[in-house]
Amino acid sequence: MMPDLGKYAVTVLSAYGVSLVLIAALVGASLWRARRVRAALRKVETRRTAR
């Protein structure tokens, strides 16, 4: 399955690794913050309507 990367295997794999980790971190941070802010806003809004 794995293609033969020859002598540049480390190079190619580390480039993919670094990029995918960075993209994953970006997406993860965005999602995490989105979820947190959404929950916080909901809490504030329900508190306001409850009163």
Partner: peptide, 13 residues
């Protein structure tokens, strides 16, 4: 060689 595969990340980024 196989380093050409990096283009698929490098150029779009």
């Amino acid at each position: 060689g196989s380093t050409v595969k990096i283009i698929y990340l490098h150029v779009p980024a």
